[in-house]
């Protein structure tokens, strides 16, 4: 299977204060297409920092992140934005939908940025929202949706741009157990149906149970990497 992400010798060191903090301390990972991977670890272990760097939101202190043959560590900020738009889908812990847009408009937005025609993007947005079970809430604004529903819109949005992989930072942290189960099922099905590669950061046992590969991070290092 082709690898989507190759992380080599990755370090992220903060020395804003006199104390040096090694958030990521020499990480090597390879993630293949179609994986459903959970990065787990306690708070402050460095999993969010790792995901941010894989997502091109943060720059490493040293090391390489190769995605589709391109090294993210060497890209300028503006190139990174463009790269993210075409290659990476994001799901955030706090949903982070655009509050003034409806569910379908939120899903369409990234496709609009990609320059996809109205007709085409509307059809895909509708199809994705139906896939996450929100076919009847297309025109609802985020404020009118529950946390679980908002996160499902976020999943649809992340998939809209047909990215190489989807990064989800603690996607279930703000959800109740029913919504969590529901969201995980949806993501699992989309992983199979859309062949979308999912990488989660989480310390939720239900997410860990669902994942096919679990990478355990502690103190910025990979402690274990288990494929079920």
């Amino acid at each position: 299977m082709e690898s989507v992400i190759k992380v080599k010798d990755l370090y992220k060191i903060y020395d804003e204060t006199s104390v040096e903090v090694r958030a990521i301390n020499g990480v090597d990972i390879e993630i293949n297409e179609g994986e459903f991977t959970a990065v787990v670890g306690p708070s402050g272990s460095g999993k969010t920092t790792l995901l941010n760097m894989i997502g091109g939101l943060d720059k490493p202190t040293s090391g390489n992140i190769m995605i589709g043959g391109q090294n993210l560590a060497l890209m300028s900020s503006s190139k990174l934005i463009d790269f993210r738009m075409h290659n990476i889908g994001f799901i955030f812990q706090a949903y982070n939908l655009i509050p003034v847009l409806t569910a379908i408009e939120n899903v369409e937005f990234v496709m609009h940025l990609q320059g996809i025609s109205y007709r085409e993007r509307r059809a895909r947005a509708k199809e994705l929202l139906e896939a996450v079970g929100l076919g009847d809430r297309l025109n609802s604004r985020p404020a009118k949706l529950s946390g679980g529903q908002q996160q499902r819109v976020a999943v649809a949005r992340a998939l809209a741009s047909r990215p190489r992989f989807i990064l989800a930072d603690e996607p279930t942290a703000n959800l109740d157990s029913k919504s969590t189960e529901n969201l995980l099922d949806i993501m699992y099905q989309l992983n199979i149906k859309e062949k979308a590669t999912f990488i989660f950061s989480s310390h939720d046992q239900r997410v860990v149970n669902k994942a096919r590969r679990v990478i355990n991070v502690e103190d910025g290092k990979i402690m274990s990497d288990i494929t079920k």
């Binding site: 939101l57 934005i81 463009d82 993210r84 994001f90 982070n96 940025l113 949005r157 741009s161």
Partner: peptide, 15 residues
Amino acid sequence: REIGMLMAIGMNGKR
């Protein structure tokens, strides 16, 4: 936060 999210999903500086 929202502007950060827009940048994350691919909204460039010009936009």
